[in-house]
Each structure stands twice: as C-alpha cells, then as structure tokens.
Design a protein around this nucleic acid. Structure first.
Lengths: 226, 226
DNA sequence: GGCTAGAATACTGCATCCATAATTATGGAT
DNA sequence: ATCCATAATTATGGATGCAGTATTCTAGCC
C-alpha cells in the first residue's frame, strides 16, 4: 500500500516532509521548538521554497503549527488530546478487527502470524525498535485484511499524532509481554472468526496501550538509557 | 472551534486553499480536471508561489493529486471510496451521538433544536443550499456536544471527501423529509439520554444518506437546473 | 536601577527568474 | 497517408531576491 511507487520520481518537498516527519517522531525536533527554515534548508542543501512547502504539508497533517509571520513550531500533544485520540483509535481499530475476523482467509492469517512471530522475537531480544516496527506492521496488516482503505488512512493519521508524543519509544515494565498476550488473543479470535470477540479484544488492547502511555507520562522523564 | 482567529492575519496560501476548496466543492473545478497554476495565479492576482503551497495542502487533504512534473488534478471519489468512507463515518458519527446523549445539557439541546428548526425551515422553503448548510451545522453541533475534538476533526476530513463527489447538492425525492424525520428521532433520543438509541439512529441516518447518494449516482446526470 | 522608546537585525512571506522535463507541433521517411 | 523523429513551446520545480514585520539590542529617561 505504502510501497514507494517505482515510476514516481517523488517530489523534493515530499522527500523533505518525510525527513522532517522522521526527525519529529524521533524527537530530534522536540515539541514546542521552533523550526528554523534557513538553517534546515542549508543543512539539506536546498532552497527555502521546497522546505516551506513541506512545512505547509506537515501543518496540514497537524505535526507542526504555522504561526503567521512568527514561524513554524513543532506541535505538542496534550494528555487530553491523547485521551481523545485513543478513544477514536479504539473505535476504529476494533471495527477493523471485527471486519478482519469476517474477511480473513488462510493466507491473511498466515501473514499475520508471521508478523506476530517477528513481534515475539523482537520481544525476546528486547529490541524495542524492532518491536515497535513489528507492532505497527501487525496493526497495518490487520487493517489491510479488514479491507477498508479509508479506515486505514484515518488510523494512520491518528497514529502520527500518538507518535508525536514522547514516551512512545518505551514499553516499560511488563508491557511487552502483556501486549504480546493481547495480540495472541486477537489472532485466536480471528482464527475462530469471532468478530465480536476480536473487536472487544482490540478495544481492550488499545485501552491498555493508553494506560501504559499514561503510566509513562506520570513517571519523571528517564527515557534515553537502555 | 473553527472560529477565525481574530488575531490571525491568516496567510495568503490559506486564503487561496480555502477558495480552491470552495471551487472544488462547488464543482466549478470538476473531478479529473487539470488545475492550471498560471491562469489561476493570474486570476487571483498573485504569484505562483502561494498558489503552489495551497495545492500542496489540498493534496495532503486528499482533494487533489499532484503528479510530479505533470501538474495538479482534482481527485475523483469512486463509489467504493464512498462505501468505505460512509462506513467509517457511520461508526464515528454514531459514537458521537452516543457521547452526545451522555453529555448534553439543556443549553446544548436547545442549541441543537434551534439548528433543527432552521433545517425544517429550509426544507419547507425547499432551499437546498440552506438545508445543506443547516444539516452540516446540526452534525457539527452534535460533534461539539460529544466533546471529542479529534473525532470531530476526523469526521470533518471525511466529510470533505463526500463533498468532493458530485451528487451532494441534491436531496432528491423525499430525502429531505426522511432526513428531517431521522434528525427528530435523534434529538428525541438525546432528550431521553438514550445513548444506545442515539447511536443506532445515527447509524441508520448515515446509512440512508449513503443510500440516497447511491440512488443519485445511478441516475443519469441531470443536475444543474433547480 | 529598572523601564520604555527607538533603531538595528533577522526572519517570514511573496514575487520573479531560470532550468529541466513534458507536451505538442512540424517535417521527413516509409 | 501514416508513423516516427526531432524541434519548439509550455508548464512545473527550485532558487534567488526583496519588502514588510517581529524581535532584539541599545540608549535614554524616569
């Protein structure tokens, strides 16, 4: 779906937008900070024009705020924002799980379980980054099986906002194991074609994800060290 | 929420984006057509720079497609797109209705009924445009009562896509009356604080909206005349 | 000594310009 | 007459330049 179109030369402003997104998600550009157009353009070796176009796009996506005549600032995501976003995510993802339970064929389930296996492996190796990636892949595949492209699109947009919040990098305490267990339960529900259970389990999964994030927010900031 | 910030001088590219949106929604720029940057810039009396920035934003919103080195084209929305979008809308709006039923206070209900009164008036006058506006206001107010800003945001985005499809201008046959009746039922459910009923009724309301649009799509194109 | 007013600086926003790629038109060959 | 190759035109994408405004630094005043 998000395969880089081979015949798409891909515009410069998109390239720049993607790089900025990554830097924002990596919190290299931290929320609240000012984005210096000149130095960034210089750093990328481009003029300000495509950079500014990229910033307009990011603003439309909600990642940054463009204050007229005052510059560009990386957005903050408040706890109430997260509450609202997770509520919507819960709704959408659980629906996706329901649909997936109805639509999944053998190949779909196999693919999903393959991803889940990667997830288990990453968890065992305690490789947070790989776990994070595989987790995204799992949910993306589930959306894919559900078959509603616009639902996927909306979920992706919301996920960006969650990635904006710091804390995302860390699944503290026993969150990894809990998450795995929840995924297993979801896959089991898909296997038995129990749409209702799949939806309910996904709702709970998203809910416990929110709870984990909340615990992180409560803690004093001690991220960084492994 | 969308109140034009009085201290926001509002950038030119935003102004342009808004005008283009209106022209797209009014189908003055019809789906599939090429957007000529030069003539548009000339028409607005501006340079291509802010215009191009606006187009980037519209592209991010999904209203147009930017084919690199090939120009900008107004997007088409297929029937399957509409199916998917309406499914998601149904999910979100019904949730909003549920939430609204729980959160609404007397003032909220009064405001909602005031809007509904405008809706009735517009219907009686058979003023399609005013009906359309009031209808939007009704749903927006309901979102407002629900209190989840991000849910509102997502719904707004999706509504743009629906507005992209032609047909929207028309509530054929007895659709106006049917829509009014459905709204009345929803308001009644809010009054009795019956969240489940509100959700169910909204789901049905969105569903019949989709059905009406489908009937339009089936008809040969005879829009335009009043 | 702190505060206010004014000047200098810096950055944003828009316009203009140029290079490159795509499209169209034209001419020749089969 | 049709098809293909090549040239001319046109539009997009990026760079640069310039005006206007916000910010900051400095100097004067209370």
């Amino acid at each position: 779906m998000n395969a880089p179109n081979p015949i798409a030369p891909l515009a410069l402003y998109q390239e720049v937008a993607e790089r900025l997104r990554q830097r924002i998600f990596a919190h290299e550009l931290t929320p609240g900070t000012w984005v210096d157009e000149q130095s960034l353009a210089e750093e990328y070796g481009i003029s300000r024009t495509p950079l500014r176009e990229a910033l307009k796009v990011l603003a439309a996506e909600g990642l940054v705020t463009l204050k007229p005549r005052r510059g560009c600032y990386v957005n903050q995501v408040s706890e109430t924002d997260l509450d609202e976003i997770f509520d919507v995510m819960s709704l959408l993802e659980s629906e996706a799980a329901r649909l997936a339970a109805q639509h999944a064929n053998a190949a779909d389930l196999a693919a999903l379980e393959a991803i889940h296996a990667q997830l288990e492996a990453a968890a065992q190796a305690r490789d947070i980054n790989r776990f994070f990636e595989a987790n995204q892949a799992f949910h993306r595949k589930l959306q894919d099986i559900a078959g509603n492209g616009w639902l996927t699109h909306v979920v992706d947009d919301l996920r960006k906002m969650i990635k904006l919040s710091r804390h995302h990098s860390l699944f503290g305490d026993g969150r990894l194991e809990q998450s795995l267990e929840e995924h297993r339960a979801i896959v089991a529900a898909l296997r038995t074609r129990d749409a209702e259970a799949a939806g309910r389990l996904m709702r709970e999964h998203i809910g416990s994800g929110r709870a984990a994030l909340q615990r992180m927010a409560a803690k004093p900031v001690s991220h960084a060290a492994a």
